[in-house]
């Protein structure tokens, strides 16, 4: 029998080689360490400090290592609240598509904190930014989400923003959205794709699949 039982289940690795203390100041220093592993642990531990949101968001913008980014986002989601949303929203303008997607997923996990900012995001001058806001809505657990998406298809002049909202409504729309969906193709009469995607969304809302 070579299965052995240890009284210490927690492994043989050295437990701690700390260069910084595990208080807020020490962790903020560690968040800028050269070693990604140290930055990752600092990010995870900073979840305990609600006023660390700004520093975590700043670090997130520069960070290139996936495990560190994920740790930062996990802590930001735990901290939650307005400072986190305000720190994450500008990152939707990043050129880094992976970071944008990670930020969209994080915002989706903060429905109450993000909701006061949705109308402002949907009114942004940059159509791409509005589309990312619509992507947030498509999987946001908030009762207003279908109404916000409906508002997009009634008001937004950008066809890609409207198409993204139609996609979202196909997932989370209710029958109240059907008149707006029915009217939408008239606004983009030159584009047969819009006719197709609104019909698909209506069928899904009505429960006919596809």
């Amino acid at each position: 029998m070579t299965l052995i039982k240890k009284h210490d289940a927690t492994g043989d690795a050295p437990r701690e080689f700390r260069h910084q203390s595990r208080d807020r100041a020490g962790l903020l220093c560690q968040l800028e360490a050269d070693a990604p592993e140290q930055r990752r642990w600092a990010a995870l531990d900073l979840a305990a400090f609600s006023d660390a949101a700004d520093a975590l968001c700043d670090r997130l913008e520069q960070e290139t290592q996936t495990p560190v980014r994920e740790a930062i986002l996990t802590s930001l989601i735990q901290i939650g609240g307005n400072p986190v949303v305000c720190g994450l929203m500008p990152l939707l303008r990043s050129e880094d598509a992976a970071l944008r997607n990670q930020v969209i997923e994080a915002l989706q996990q903060l429905p109450e904190a993000v909701s006061p900012y949705i109308e402002r995001m949907l009114a942004d001058d940059d159509a791409d930014y509005r589309i990312f806001a619509i992507n947030v809505l498509a999987n946001l657990r908030h009762p207003q989400a279908p109404a916000w998406l409906q508002d997009v298809i009634e008001r937004d002049d950008n066809i890609n923003a409207c198409a993204a909202a139609v996609d979202g409504l196909a997932e989370i729309g209710t029958p109240e959205a059907i008149p707006a969906l029915t009217a939408l193709p008239e606004r983009f009469a030159d584009d047969p794709f819009m006719q197709f995607c609104t019909q698909t969304a209506i069928r899904r809302i009505q429960g006919h699949g596809a």
């Binding site: 029998m1 299965l3 052995i4 039982k5 240890k6 009284h7 289940a9 927690t10 492994g11 043989d12 690795a13 437990r15 995870l44 531990d45 979840a47």
Partner: peptide, 26 residues
Amino acid sequence: DDLRQSVDFTQVNLSDLAQMRAYRDF
């Protein structure tokens, strides 16, 4: 008994970062 002795049972809460910090090297 041989099998019973071969497994180390411990109580953990996966959501407790401080407690889980010690579980490493798997």
